[in-house]
């Protein structure tokens, strides 16, 4: 184990308050083997998980659009920016806490903290400042319900998911998926000051979509997760049980994906997208179930992972197009 990994392991004693104190002091007196004088600006930006921020902006925007309520454009833009910054801050806190496991996984070993470009204490301070700042500015820009929901999302992801669920149960990404599903709800709270059925359905779609999406990746990365000691579903229940559960979740996702049509806020374009997209998810999940060995298994799982991203993107794009470009054609009168 490298000096860097050892330093990170030393800092991870599972007691959040002690670890927080260690991290802050580690920022003042870095481990000699890892001593750096600050990272690049791009390293700090990488701590915010920019790709996740883009997804959060997109889903929150759809949450605003389906509400069909006019919002002052400046207020709307600043609110979206703050939702993205809040999501980035929770990603930063997640990277601070998970630096020890990131260091042993190939996919994440080059992240700024395990790579030694940023000290844990710097990342912790950066994450806390952005969390508090984004919640306060969102509250001032829109309303305190939206700000409260953003604060809840940050705490849920950074504390409940990262510090406990992720290392405790194979249901980690099932329950933790709620954090990733909340942005449309925050978006609707920004424009209406309340939470309606539209955003709750969008929440449910992302929530049920998350397990088959992540488990497809976990199937081909199970060795890495085992090395890091993370109890992902394929490592605990086995790959066969995981493949079966991917089918179950895809089956549940199919009617939930069509729910906006029956509730009257998804039109013809959305309905067709949800219909064929849902069938696609089912087809890919069966493909994953049937291909269990070698390269075929890997290709099937990667196909499922890639299609699940496309599915969610198309679903939300259809809703956005219908509600902002006037493409809405009612299916149910």
């Amino acid at each position: 184990m490298s000096a860097r990994s050892e330093a990170l392991q030393d800092n991870r004693n599972r007691d959040p308050m002690t670890s927080l104190s260690n991290s802050l002091s580690a920022g003042a007196e870095p481990h000699p083997a890892t001593m750096v004088v600050g990272g690049e600006v791009s390293d700090f930006f990488a701590l915010l998980k920019p790709r996740v921020m883009v997804l959060v902006i997109f889903t929150a925007l759809v949450g605003m659009a389906v509400s069909n309520v006019h919002i002052q454009p400046v207020v709307g833009t600043i609110s979206l920016l703050m939702i993205a910054v809040g999501a980035g801050a929770s990603g930063c806190l997640n990277m601070w806490w998970d630096a020890d496991i990131d260091a042993v996984m190939t996919r994440t070993a080059k992240r700024p903290i395990p790579d030694g470009r940023i000290q844990p204490g710097e990342a912790l301070a950066f994450g806390i400042v952005l969390s508090v700042g984004s919640v306060l500015v969102l509250g001032l820009a829109s309303n305190w319900l939206a700000a409260g929901l953003l604060a809840f999302t940050i705490v849920f992801y950074a504390v409940f998911y990262s510090m406990w669920l992720k290392r405790a149960t194979p249901q980690n990404i099932v329950i933790g998926g709620a954090a990733g599903a909340l942005p449309p709800v925050i978006g609707q709270a920004v424009v209406t000051g309340s939470v309606g059925i539209e955003s709750l359905v969008l929440f449910l779609i992302i929530f049920i979509w998350t397990p088959p999406h992540f488990w497809a990746l976990a199937l081909i990365k199970s060795g890495e997760y085992a090395k890091a000691g993370i109890p992902m579903m394929p490592n605990v229940a086995g790959p066969q049980s995981t493949r079966r559960q991917i089918i179950y979740y895809s089956l549940v996702l199919f009617p939930i994906g069509l729910a906006p049509v029956f509730l009257g806020f998804g039109g013809l374009l959305y309905g067709l997208t949800a219909l064929f997209g849902g069938l696609g998810m089912l087809a890919f999940s069966v493909h994953v179930f049937r291909n269990r060995e070698g390269e075929a298994e890997r290709k099937a799982a990667l196909g499922m992972f890639g299609f699940s991203i496309l599915y969610l993107f198309l679903l939300f794009s259809a809703l956005l197009a219908e509600h902002s470009l006037g493409l809405f054609r009612a299916v149910i009168a």
Binding site: Q72, V74, V75, I78, V137, L140, A141
Partner: peptide
């Protein structure tokens, strides 16, 4: 940017 946000937001809210 933060100063600009507060300035623009104030003007937008006052209308």
């Amino acid at each position: 940017t933060l100063v600009a946000i507060f300035y623009v937001l104030t003007i937008a809210k006052l209308g």
